[in-house]
Design a protein around this nucleic acid. Structure first.
Lengths: 193, 193
DNA sequence: ACAACAAAAATGAATGTTCATTCTTTTTTT
DNA sequence: AAAAAAAGAATGAACATTCATTTTTGTTGT
């Protein structure tokens, strides 16, 4: 028990260090030795928890992606109306991307580079299913435009990634009223009228 | 003349190889030796054209970004109406992202990772000025929502990057009618009504 | 038009470093 | 005291960059 606890702490520290170093320096400039140092661990110890560097970064991705989708759907339930359900999910996603931005940034990096093995990437997509189901329901009810889910995602959700990155770079700051603007843009882009 | 021509060819071959290898393998897994081989050149020759690896990738970014913005604004002129001007620019950008997708993918990777030096990244942004100017004009005329340009960009332009990546992954195919849908989503998200 | 040569461009092989991973030993836990 | 976990040092491969030569190009004098 105590021993397992300790192990999980160490694993988490390694994952946290990986995220931080990859965010700041890029995958190409984060050696195992630095990850170990930041996690207060010997390099050799990493190999007790992960097979190799690729496995470490894959597992980190899985971990962060799971946090993301858990957070996104935590307050949603499938008996909500389509409009209300979308609002709930959208705002949770916005919250995650803008506040847990270390995590969100790591995901953005993984989703735009070939550092994660393809099967792992596929795995991560599946967790978005509740949102896709909601959209299908919305289309049947005639509330949501009858378009490919990729298009809906591109316009309703993905802009948040761009805004998160811009904010991270310090280019601008998204305040509460702008966030409300953004939500209106998102909803009005996918809703039927 | 003939000699300069030859040099430019070699430089272009190096840049092309860099794009292709970074796209497929990531920056961390594209050694100078592979770039050289793909460009049919000795590794040492790269250093006649570029200071070092960082300089090579920076210059590649500048090069591709210039191609992108040149293409985007080629058919636009500032005496067009706001709506027409936006349509012209949007469609050129869509065309570039979906057809010159090797180039677009490289930019997406650079924009979401710390592989490019920050000052170089800043430089690249400036070229979008004509679009920002158009938006300012549109706001004054009351045609475009009075929101931060970052928000407008996030909803009107950035979704194309996501769609390009999805298409690159083979996840789905954007046909002509969907592209028209996408344009409608983009315009309706930023226009006043 | 062309030989001879200087300058520039290009090369393949070396250099030295960095890094992922493994090995052996030590420390901690049971 | 045995087993498990962790550590630091060692290993060997990969890599960016440089070096010493060779090849190509351009120029000059005939």
């Amino acid at each position: 028990m105590a021993t397992l606890q300790k192990s999980i702490d160490k694993r988490n520290a390694l994952i946290k260090a990986t995220i931080e170093l990859v965010n700041n320096n890029g995958f190409h400039a984060t050696p195992m030795s630095k990850i170990a140092k930041m996690a207060n661990v010997s390099p050799a110890t990493i190999y007790l928890y992960f097979e190799n560097k690729q496995d470490l970064v894959n597992k980190t991705y899985i971990d962060v992606k799971a946090q993301y989708t858990n957070y996104a759907f935590e307050t949603y339930s499938s008996d909500m109306s389509v409009e209300r359900g979308f609002e709930v999910i959208w705002k949770r996603i916005a919250d995650f991307k803008l506040n847990a931005s270390e995590n969100a940034m790591f995901l953005a990096q993984c989703d735009n580079t070939p550092i994660i093995d393809e099967p792992i990437l596929q795995e991560g997509i599946k967790h978005l299913q509740p949102l896709l189901d909601l959209w299908e329901r919305g289309k049947k009810e005639g509330l949501i435009k009858n378009m490919s889910n990729y298009l809906l995602y591109a316009y309703a959700i993905n802009p948040l990634s761009f805004l998160m990155m811009a904010q991270k770079r310090g280019a601008f700051q998204l305040d509460a009223s702008q966030l409300e603007d953004a939500y209106q843009l998102a909803w009005s882009s996918i809703k039927n009228n």
